[in-house]
Simulated assay, not measured.
Amino acid sequence: MKIVFRCDPALADHLPRPVAAGDALPDWLRRMPVTARSELTGQAVRTVKQCPPFVEAMRTGFLMPLPCDVRVEAGRFEWDWQIPGPSVREHPRAPLAFHVPAQLSGMPGHDPRHAAIKFNSFWTIELEPGWSLFATHPANREDLPFRTLTGLVHADLFNDAGINFPALWTEPDFSGVLPKGLPVVQCFAVPREPAELVFESLDASRAAGYSALVQAVMAEPGVYRKRFRPRRPRG
């Protein structure tokens, strides 16, 4: 899968590039202990840092970064981003825009008193034929003060303009800076051809495999990581 990103030539030296998600894991995950004492059992248990599916979700796809620092104070968003004027007509210049509250009327979790923010994209994204772009909130990033809404764009066809990413602001009391490079959305290329759903009962062989695998997982930590996790290519 080749994914092509393009930007306004006047801004090429001023924009952080989209990054492979595995190259931008959050610091809290790196600092997280691999075991912690459980108050329920009184014993040390493995944390989600040792759960490959949890971490792999955070390592998959790519992240779109915030292009500059954004200061947030009492619900007010400000930035001081000194960039050249874009050379392409109709191109955004601000890192953020907004959706009026009425556009999300009836959506659970939306406060009708507040507008939704919209992260403007400064990169176009082109996928190979037959593939679409699944865009969602960065996986397991509950530390972020917003919740990016999920969308699917047919980016093999729609790729002449940037894709903007709406989000609900979830921490009204937040005061601070959203730093340049902060991931605002995580994206995956997904095949547009619908999957065929097949339903079967476990035969004797599959039933034996089920029991053996569950016993192995319960008996020894790291079975999934050692036996079922593909090696990631270096490069």
Rank of each mutant, 00 (worst) to 15 (best):
E78Y: 11
R89W: 11
P65K: 00
G42H: 11
Q50D: 06
P92Y: 12
A36S: 08
T47S: 01
R89Q: 15
A102R: 14
W79D: 05
A57C: 07
R59Q: 12
Q103A: 14
Q43F: 14
R31S: 14
H114Y: 12
R30G: 05
C68I: 03
P101F: 05
T60L: 07
L63I: 01
A24P: 03
R113F: 12
P86D: 05
T35A: 06
D111M: 10
D27E: 15
P67V: 03
R71Q: 13
P108T: 12
A74G: 09
F77C: 04
G85T: 14
W81G: 06
D27G: 10
P65W: 00
L66G: 00
D111W: 04
V72R: 04
P26F: 00
H91D: 06
M58W: 00
F62D: 00
E78R: 13
D80A: 15
F54Q: 03
R93N: 13
Q50S: 07
R59L: 02
R30S: 12
H91I: 08
R93I: 12
P95L: 03
E78G: 13
R37V: 09
F54T: 05
M64P: 00
G106N: 07
E56I: 05
R113D: 15
A94C: 11
G61H: 00
R46C: 05
P95N: 04
W79I: 04
P33N: 08
T60Y: 02
L66A: 01
H114V: 07
A97D: 13
C51M: 08
P52R: 08
R30P: 01
M64F: 01
G61M: 00
S38N: 05
P92A: 10
G109M: 06
F54I: 03
D111F: 06
R37Y: 09
P95F: 03
C51L: 09
T41A: 14
R89K: 15
Q82K: 15
R31M: 13
R30L: 11
K49M: 02
H99M: 13
Q82M: 14
R59T: 02
W28G: 04
A24T: 02
M32V: 08
A57T: 06
P95S: 08
V48M: 08
G42T: 11
A74D: 15
P92E: 09
R31V: 07
W79A: 02
F98A: 10
I83A: 05
H99N: 14
D69P: 04
T60S: 11
C68S: 05
P67N: 02
D111L: 08
P108H: 11
Q82V: 15
R46V: 03
R59W: 02
A97V: 05
L63M: 04
R113Y: 14
R93H: 15
F54S: 03
D111I: 04
V34P: 00
P53Q: 09
L25C: 11
V72S: 05
R31I: 08
